[in-house]
Design a protein around this nucleic acid. Sequence first.
DNA 1: TATATACCCGACTAAAATAGTCAAGTTTTT
DNA 2: AAAAACTTGACTATTTTAGTCGGGTATATA
Lengths: 140, 140
Amino acid sequence: MKLNTKSRYAVMALADMAVFSSDDAVSLRDISLRQGISLLYLEQIFLKLKKNNIVKSVRGINGGYILVKSPKELKILDILLALDQKVKTIGCKKNSKKSCNGKSTKCITHNFWDELDIHINSFFESKKLSDLLKNREARI
Amino acid sequence: MKLNTKSRYAVMALADMAVFSSDDAVSLRDISLRQGISLLYLEQIFLKLKKNNIVKSVRGINGGYILVKSPKELKILDILLALDQKVKTIGCKKNSKKSCNGKSTKCITHNFWDELDIHINSFFESKKLSDLLKNREARI
DNA sequence: TATATACCCGACTAAAATAGTCAAGTTTTT
DNA sequence: AAAAACTTGACTATTTTAGTCGGGTATATA
């Protein structure tokens, strides 16, 4: 049970932007160098972040990306959703279109998975990007 | 971010055992029929549950499996651990042997993933098998 | 206005994980 | 003896993941 790298790198990259924020756009090249994430991969990730209005882009020679919201307002959940990272443990059986059929023995675990989803989602909902920056060491 | 089927089926199967508990062992054949899970697959799952002392087996013609602990004492976490289902979101980068190297910018997200793990693990730690049975409908 | 920088975007692929099956047992009750 | 049920390792097809590739487009600055 783990988050995929796209989600993790997205959070990492946005945290990087928050740390190195200025009025200027932050280029993927800089993030790539600082965080050790492939530039090509970052492009793919930021495409989704842009589509989901987490960042906006500035094209051209001094271009890059800018956070749409302040780190204090940006929920981690929004980042994960932008990367299609649904927190879904899946109820009952794998392929059931309807998550439950009528037979209730098959649904013994159903409510439990729902609870788990709520538990995890509320964590991501409560955490803001700025929360990640709090405990880090002062020095770069 | 989801639990694999082995883990989910394990919880489902054990919940089934708890519901249909008696002094006798419960056969995998019965669980398979009731829960619609492949018998062969259940065998693989129960092998691990047995190795990890979640169930004990009774061989022979009226054999099957018996819960080692009562559902009230059996933590969901123990079940997941038996299936190798570590709740590890992975810190920092994928392949780093040491989860952090000295450069602290790379560890911006590190504490956050740790917090997430703790959050999820404490959920599984607090929930017992008996908790799954509470809300289910009275009728089979 | 040339050009380098940086975003844009779909398609592709290798590798790993997952879900599940198969074969060939052993044990125990009736 | 025979049938039910557990035991175990190996095998495989499918799916997912992680990441690359190629060929764009936009724009600031020299």
